[in-house]
């Protein structure tokens, strides 16, 4: 491959990763606040449908994105209210919403299947887009892709550099202590569930208006939500590491298309399901990396240490355990 092809490849990776990054960052925020929004796979589809349909009806991509984001937030609010205020199992509610949001999307979106609708226009950034290699890879996309890039930075700054971000990290660690300090852990969690849901909704809108324009059954975004949930863990609940995971995944997807061309003897299905065994393997490594016996055994294999260090994220201590007043 010459340089030109490589830049096309990486540009495809960056573009393809955009919705995954948005969803992963959204879920990272939510889980950092101590809440698991398991409904991602369904809410991405529902917001993708809502975004496409509104964009189609209003001829405005921007309105589509807004509605998509709001729909994502709405599903997140349901998960949050059920778990924080009604003390129901987050997993149960999230799972029901996964199935329900998907079916709702198929049902309401049915008349809009396979229609030619509006999509986001490319927006190369002047000057920057002309830089060799980096130009086409990072600066020759449309604005949802730029948004995904900017969000990584903003979220990292917010979480680790601002007092509000400190409170976000704190509420996922020990909601009782947050309460004792005069803040309302329930409201904080609800707020961050909404923030996370907005990003997930944007991810859905990005799918139906940019990455895989249009609506249908299947849309093509199916399964992304589960990938995003796995990537949050892979990223150790850190936005930058989670984004790296999203790029790796996108790289695998793009390479799958190439590999299929090069190695026709390997059936297509292998490439389609490859991310999932990899997800399990990553989770296995994360959990093993916290076991001393395992660490002692791999001490003789120095090459494996950086991997383990990279994967040794600790989940927020109060993840999935909402605050209960005494």
């Amino acid at each position: 491959m010459n340089e030109f092809q490589v830049s096309i490849l990486f540009a495809a990776v960056v573009a393809g990763a955009a919705p995954i990054i948005l969803a992963t960052l959204g879920e990272t925020i939510t889980e950092r606040a101590g809440l698991i929004n398991l409904s991602l796979d369904g809410s991405i589809l529902l917001s993708a449908m809502a975004a496409f349909v509104t964009a189609y009806l209003t001829h405005s991509v921007a309105v589509g994105f807004i509605i998509g984001a709001l729909v994502g937030a709405l599903v997140a609010v349901l998960v949050a209210v059920f778990s924080i205020y009604l003390s129901q199992s987050q997993v149960a509610v999230g799972f029901v919403l996964t199935l329900m949001a998907r079916d709702l999307a198929y049902f309401i979106g049915n008349p809009y299947s396979r229609l030619q609708g509006p999509q986001v226009m490319p927006l190369p950034i002047p000057l920057l887009a002309d830089i060799p290699f980096f130009g086409p890879v990072f600066f020759n996309h449309n604005w949802p892709v730029y948004l995904s890039l900017v969000c990584i930075g903003i979220l990292t700054w917010y979480m680790y550099r601002t007092p509000m971000g400190l409170a976000l990290r704190a509420v996922g660690e020990h909601p009782k202590a947050v309460f004792a300090r005069g803040m309302d852990p329930k409201k904080l969690q609800l707020f961050y569930a909404v923030c996370g849901g907005l990003l997930v909704g944007l991810a859905g809108a990005t799918f139906s208006l940019s990455t895989k324009p249009g609506w249908g059954r299947p849309q093509g975004a199916e399964g992304t939500g589960w990938i995003a949930l796995a990537l949050v863990i892979f990223g150790g609940w850190h936005p930058v590491k989670a984004a790296i995971g999203a790029y790796l995944f996108s790289f695998l997807q793009v390479m799958g298309i190439y590999l299929q061309g090069w190695l026709p003897s390997i059936p297509t299905q292998v490439f389609q399901v490859a991310p999932f065994p990899l997800m399990i393997f990553t989770l296995l490594l994360i959990s093993l990396a916290q076991k001393e016996a395992f660490l002692a055994r791999v001490e003789k294999m120095p090459w494996i240490r950086p991997f383990i260090q990279m994967l040794s994220g600790t989940p927020p201590s109060a993840l999935g355990k909402p605050h209960e007043a005494e």
Partner: peptide, 24 residues
Amino acid sequence: PLDFLNLSVLDNFMLGQVSGLKNE
């Protein structure tokens, strides 16, 4: 003690005293 084991002493000290976006 209702504090945050994974955060630093300074973070624990600040939490609840300060809000907003300014790094203080």
